[in-house]
C-alpha cells in the first residue's frame, strides 16, 4: 500500500464515503418501512391533487394543469431546501462522528444533499409518469435544459449548504435563520406563480434580468419549460375572460432566453459555491472542538 494517495484515488474514496453515508440515511429513514418509502412517493402526488383542486377548481386559475406546473418547479425547490437544511444540520447531527473519527468533513453536507437528491429524483420519476398520464409527454428538445439547470442548482445547494453547515457549528442560530430565509425565498421564486407575473411588473429592463440573479429562478423556469412545457395560455373561456388567451404563460418560447436566465443564476450560484467551500475549508479543522 502506498503512503501517499493520488488525487484520483482520494476523490474516489470520498465519493464512496458519501454514497455510504447516503445509504445510511436512507436506511435509517426507511428502515423496514415500505410504507414510509411509498409515502415519500405518494406525497408529491397528493400535493399535486390538492393544489390542482384548490387552484384549478376553487380559484379557477387560468394556468392549465396547475398541479403539473407547480410540481415541475416545486420538486426542484424541495431538493434545494431539503439539501440546504440537511447540510446545515449535518455536522451537528453527526457530532459523534466528527468528534471521534478523522475523515473528510465535506462528506457530511454532501451526503445530506445526496440524500435529498435521491428522494427528489424518485419524486420526479412520479411526476414524469403523471405527465404521460395527463397527455403532456415532455419529449421535446427543451428537455435537455434540465442538465445545465441541475448543474446550477447543485452548485447553489452545495455552496449555501456548506456555508450554513460551517456557520451553524459556531452559531447555532444559523439553522433557524436558514429555515426562515428559505421560506421567504420560496415566495420570491416563480414556483407557485408563473414567472410572467413578475415580468409584467418589472418591465424588461435591468430589473427584469436582476430577478434571475436568484440562483433558483433560472433553473426553475428551465424545469417548467422542459417538463411542463405549456408556453402559451390556451384559448379557453377563463383565459379569454381575463384576456390571457394566447399570451405567454412561461417567460419565452425561445431556448436562448432560458440559457440567459440560467447564466445569471449561475453567477450567484458560483459565488455561493466559492464562499461555501472557502468557509467550510477554513472552519472544518475546528469542528470537533466546537461541537
Amino acid at each position: 500500500m502506498g503512503l501517499t494517495r493520488t488525487r484520483g484515488t482520494q476523490t474516489r474514496l470520498r465519493t464512496a464515503l458519501i454514497r455510504q453515508l447516503v445509504r445510511k440515511d436512507l436506511k435509517v429513514k426507511y428502515q423496514g418501512s415500505t410504507l414510509g418509502f411509498l409515502w415519500s412517493l405518494a406525497n408529491p402526488l397528493l400535493i399535486l391533487v390538492v393544489y390542482t383542486f384548490v387552484f384549478a377548481v376553487v380559484f379557477k386559475s387560468p394556468v392549465p394543469y396547475f398541479g403539473i406546473f407547480l410540481m415541475s418547479g416545486m420538486l426542484l425547490w424541495n431538493f434545494f431546501t431539503m439539501g440546504v437544511s440537511g447540510a446545515t444540520t449535518s455536522i451537528l447531527a453527526n457530532a459523534g462522528l466528527v468528534k471521534k473519527v478523522p475523515f473528510a468533513h465535506e462528506s457530511l453536507p454532501l451526503a445530506a444533499i445526496g440524500f435529498a437528491g435521491a428522494q427528489v429524483a424518485l419524486q420526479y420519476i412520479v411526476l414524469v409518469g403523471a405527465l404521460f398520464v395527463v397527455g403532456l409527454p415532455p419529449l421535446r428538445p427543451e428537455l435537455l435544459l434540465i442538465i445545465p439547470a441541475l448543474v446550477v442548482v447543485i452548485a447553489a445547494t452545495v455552496g449555501l449548504g456548506m456555508f450554513a453547515a460551517a456557520s451553524t457549528v459556531r452559531l447555532r442560530d444559523t439553522q433557524h435563520f436558514v429555515e426562515v430565509a428559505l421560506f421567504a425565498w420560496m415566495w420570491m421564486t416563480p414556483i407557485i406563480y408563473p414567472a410572467t407575473f413578475v415580468h409584467e411588473r418589472l418591465g424588461d429592463g435591468a430589473l427584469f434580468w436582476a430577478y434571475y440573479l436568484n440562483p433558483m429562478a433560472g433553473p426553475i423556469v428551465c424545469f417548467q419549460r422542459a417538463l411542463y412545457g405549456v408556453v402559451h395560455y390556451p384559448d379557453t373561456e377563463a383565459t379569454r375572460a381575463s384576456g390571457q388567451a394566447g399570451q405567454l404563460l412561461l417567460p419565452s418560447a425561445d431556448v436562448s432566453f432560458y440559457l440567459q436566465a440560467l447564466g445569471l443564476s449561475a453567477i450567484t450560484a458560483t459565488v455561493f459555491l466559492i464562499a461555501g467551500l472557502w468557509l467550510f475549508r477554513r472552519r472544518s479543522a475546528d469542528f470537533a472542538e466546537e461541537l
Partner: peptide, 26 residues
C-alpha cells in the same frame, strides 16, 4: 472512543461498511 464511527440504528453489518468507508477503505 467506544462506538466511534458507529450508527446505533444500523446493524453490525452495515456499520462495518460505514466504519471502513470512514477509514478510507473502498
Amino acid at each position: 472512543e467506544l462506538g466511534a464511527g458507529f450508527d446505533g440504528e444500523l446493524t453490525g453489518r452495515e456499520n462495518i461498511y460505514l466504519n471502513s468507508a470512514l477509514l478510507g477503505v473502498p
